[in-house]
Design a protein around this nucleic acid. Structure first.
Lengths: 155, 155
DNA sequence: GGAATGTATTTGAACTTTAAACAGTTGCCG
DNA sequence: CGGCAACTGTTTAAAGTTCAAATACATTCC
C-alpha cells in the first residue's frame, strides 16, 4: 500500500529543477527591476489587469482570480495601492456586497512607466534567453497547466 | 529618450501570462499537497538538497544558493526545521564563521514520505499535463534562464 | 416577511519574508 | 604583527502574507 509512486526520470528531474530554479531567479530579477520604482510584480499585475479592463475597474474577487491571489491578500494589497493613490475603491451599486477597484489617473500614469521597465526585464531575463519556438512551447505547455488546475474562475 | 521599448507581441504576451499564471497555480497546488503534512515547498527543497548532499550536510550559504533563498530567510527556516527535529546546526571546525545544516534521521524519515507526496503532485500538476517533448523543451529553456541570471553560486 | 444559507469583503492576529544592522572570522597587505 | 576589507551567519524590526473569524449584503425557501 506504500509504493505506486512514479518517480521522475533523470531528465525529468533535471527539467523540474531548472524550472523551479529558473522561476525563482526570474521572479527575483523582475521584482528587483520594479522595486527600484517602489512596487513589486504582484502589485504591478494588479494595476496591469485593471488597466486592461473596461473602465479600468474590476471587482475584487474577479481580480483576485485573475492574478491568482487570495481575496484577503488582494484586500491588503489594494489598501497599499490605494495609499499610493494609484487605485480607488468603489462599492458596486448593483451588488452592494461587492467592491470595485478602479485605476486612478495617477495609477495609469505610473503604470505607463512601470510597464516599460517591466517589459524590458521580462525580455532580458526570459523571452530573449530562448528561441521564439521554445518560448512558444513554454507558453503552450503552461497554458495546459493552467487549464488542468482550473484555469477558469475557480479557487 | 523615452521610447526604445520592445513590447511583447500578442503571442508572446499570451505565453508570458500563461507562464505567470501557470506557475502561481502550480506553486499553490504543490504547497497545498505538502501543507497537509505540515511543510511547504520551500522547506521541502531544503530537506531534499540536504538529503542528496554528501553526509546529509551543507553549509548555510551553499544551501541558500541552491534553493535561491536569501541567507536571512534560510536562517529563519532552518530554525523552524530545527524545532521540528528534522535538521541540526553544526558549526564548521575549519571555518569558524560557517555553519553546516545536517539532516537528522527523523528528517530523513519524514522526507521519505514527503517525497512521495511531492513527486505525485509534481507529476499530476505539471509533468503529466504536457508531452515529454514539451516538458523537455521547458526544462531546456529554463536552464538557459538560470544560466543567464547567473546560474552559478552568485547572488 | 424573516430565518437560514450563501457570497463578498474586511479585520486582526499569527506567521513568514525582507532589509538593514550586527558580531565574529578570515585573509591580505603594508 | 596590525589593521582593514570582505565574508558568514544571526538578529531585529518593519513589511507582507495567511488564516480564521467577523461583517454585511443577497438569496432562497418556507
Amino acid at each position: 500500500m506504500t509504493d505506486e509512486v512514479r518517480w521522475l526520470s533523470e531528465d525529468e528531474q533535471r527539467s523540474w529543477r531548472a524550472f523551479l530554479r529558473g522561476h525563482r531567479m526570474l521572479a527575483e530579477a523582475l521584482d528587483e527591476a520594479l522595486l527600484v520604482h517602489g512596487i513589486r510584480l504582484s502589485e504591478y499585475e494588479i494595476l496591469s489587469m485593471l488597466s486592461e479592463a473596461a473602465g479600468g475597474r474590476l471587482r475584487m474577487s474577479v481580480l483576485a482570480d485573475m492574478v491568482v491571489q487570495s481575496r484577503s491578500r488582494l484586500t491588503h494589497t489594494a489598501t497599499r495601492l490605494e495609499r499610493l493613490g494609484w487605485v480607488e475603491r468603489h462599492s458596486c451599486l448593483e451588488d452592494r456586497r461587492g467592491v470595485e477597484l478602479v485605476l486612478t489617473d495617477a495609477g495609469r500614469e505610473a503604470l505607463e512607466n512601470l510597464s516599460r521597465v517591466h517589459v524590458t526585464s521580462v525580455r532580458e531575463s526570459l523571452v530573449d534567453q530562448m528561441t521564439p519556438e521554445e518560448f512558444a512551447v513554454l507558453g503552450q505547455a503552461m497554458a495546459k497547466v493552467v487549464a488542468a488546475l482550473g484555469g477558469g474562475t475557480e479557487r
